[in-house]
């Protein structure tokens, strides 16, 4: 009996331990927008063929991605919140921040546009219209890159939306997809990056109602986690991945990625 149990435990241990990372695999903490749009599924097989390196992606909100990277649970960070990224580097957790690509944010909402934001010229005007008509607005409320952008837009419009939280301003505390499902469900406006919107399938009556303001620029950056802070980081492989992403090969590949015939990301590495 005892020897049986021991044998069982041994075989279980084997099962558990055979499942750790491949030695050459690197871990990228990233945003849901890049993962949900299918960009990684498009890029990573090519990079693997090119380098032999497997890239594993954990897709969470930008805030959580940065926090995970600060816990040394990443080799590379790929997010979209420039200030927070620069803070990450200056705190010593990142080696260097590279601009990688951009797209833009859009405001989506019910087609009947209760706040009448369609055709307005600035994001300040659009957000003011939503707030003054007390039209429903679904906010990420999760400290993600999109959430940070949204907060800065309210600030530009001098509106204290958080004061009306639970009334017309609804904080979902969830990822982009879940927040859009909520917005669709309750007929609310929401701010989303264009890539997630284009690849989002449950649109029902929702449509892009405001876009194009330079305020809505959405820059993605990529950072190698610093080995001095995090000794386990696979610097060589991580750097290889970043070099490839910002190389002309990588940039061209990013530019060529399309969903439903639309380009999602615009490379701008220097």
């Amino acid at each position: 009996m005892i020897s049986n149990v021991a044998r069982l435990l041994a075989s279980i241990l084997l099962l558990v331990t055979t499942s750790t990372h491949g030695s050459d695999a690197i871990l990228v903490q990233s945003t849901t927008s890049t993962a949900n749009s299918g960009l990684y599924d498009f890029l990573l097989p090519v990079f693997r063929q090119h380098s032999g390196i497997t890239v594993n992606v954990v897709a969470v909100g930008t805030g959580q991605a940065i926090r995970n990277a600060r816990n040394c649970d990443a080799d590379v960070l790929l997010v979209h919140a420039k200030e927070a990224e620069e803070q990450f580097v200056s705190d010593g957790y990142g080696v260097h921040r590279h601009d990688l690509m951009y797209n833009d944010f859009v405001i989506v909402g019910p087609s009947d546009d209760p706040g009448a934001i369609k055709g307005l010229s600035t994001s300040v005007a659009a957000f003011t219209a939503i707030a003054s008509t007390r039209s429903l607005f679904a906010s990420r409320g999760d400290n993600s890159g999109t959430h940070k952008k949204e907060l800065s837009l309210w600030q530009n419009a001098s509106i204290d939306a958080a004061a009306d939280s639970g009334k017309w301003y609804r904080e979902t505390g969830s990822g982009m997809g879940a927040t859009m499902n909520t917005a669709v469900g309750m007929g609310a406006y929401t701010l989303t990056d264009r890539a997630t919107w284009i690849s989002f399938k449950n649109r029902q009556n929702h449509a892009v109602l405001f876009e194009g303001d330079s305020d809505l620029f959405n820059q993605y950056g990529v950072i190698l986690v610093n080995q001095e802070k995090c000794p386990a980081v696979k610097s060589a492989q991580g750097q290889k991945f970043i070099d490839w992403l910002i190389s002309s090969d990588g940039q061209q590949l990013i530019a060529s990625y399309q969903v439903n015939g639309q380009q999602l990301f615009y490379p701008n590495a220097r």
Binding site: T17, S19, T20, H21, R70, N71, D73
Partner: peptide, 20 residues
């Protein structure tokens, strides 16, 4: 987590962690 007491196990983000 690598910042936690059992980071040396390198179990995070593996099926082993999920089994655990």
């Amino acid at each position: 987590s690598n910042a936690g007491p059992f980071g040396w196990l390198q179990l995070l983000y593996t099926p082993g962690a999920m089994i655990l």
